[in-house]
């Protein structure tokens, strides 16, 4: 993901360019969705959350300063919203019955396998590295982990994924 390009799009959006907003959505939606999915663990919740995240990006565009890492800003909005949703969801679950966990990706698809074999931390590391082109050092900063931990977790995650996919095949 080209961080400079994202920054440029954010600037265009701030000037009222709705096309740039659509372009931003297309460029970043997989990354945003996948990050949300690691928190919410449900396709529909992640999909709904994603729409809200983009709404927040639009509404809060002026709180972003050009050149201060647009993707990090988007990720932060997504993460904050996911955590708020989780909290709200937990409260609802306390009051009502516990809903069945549903996986909306096909069984044995890569997303499904990732969900089953990787820990949430490992999933986030893979999402940030693969979909957001984040370096391990940057991931460490975002997740509050030493770079070494990120590297080892990433390696372990790849190994787990590889083995799981081999088993499936």
């Amino acid at each position: 993901m080209d961080k400079k390009y994202i920054d440029e799009l954010l600037y265009k959006i701030s000037t009222g360019d709705n096309k740039a907003f659509e372009e931003l959505y297309i460029k970043t939606r997989k990354g945003v969705f996948s990050l949300l999915y690691t928190y919410l663990e449900n396709y529909h919740d992640a999909e709904d959350a994603m729409q809200t995240v983009y709404l927040r990006i639009k509404r809060g565009i002026h709180s972003y300063s050009v050149g201060t890492n647009g993707s990090a800003w988007i990720l932060q909005i997504a993460k904050n919203y996911a955590l708020t949703e989780l909290k709200r969801h937990r409260q609802t679950v306390d009051l009502e019955s516990v809903p069945e966990q549903s996986y909306d990706f096909e069984f044995n698809s890569v997303s499904d396998i990732m969900k089953r074999v990787l820990s949430p931390d490992e999933q986030r590391i893979v999402v940030l590295h693969v979909l957001w082109d984040y370096k391990h050092k940057e991931i460490g900063k975002v997740m509050g982990m030493p770079t070494g931990t990120v590297t080892s977790k990433y390696k372990r995650a790849l190994e787990k994924l590889r083995n799981a996919i081999k088993e499936v095949e």
Partner: peptide, 24 residues
């Protein structure tokens, strides 16, 4: 590819939401 196939369009209300006109 899997993710691509699962991605939906932006909801109309999100698209229609006006962008605030404050200076950047």
């Amino acid at each position: 590819k899997e993710l691509d196939s699962k991605m939906t369009r932006l909801r109309q209300d999100v698209l229609d939401e006006p962008i605030p006109t404050k200076p950047f």
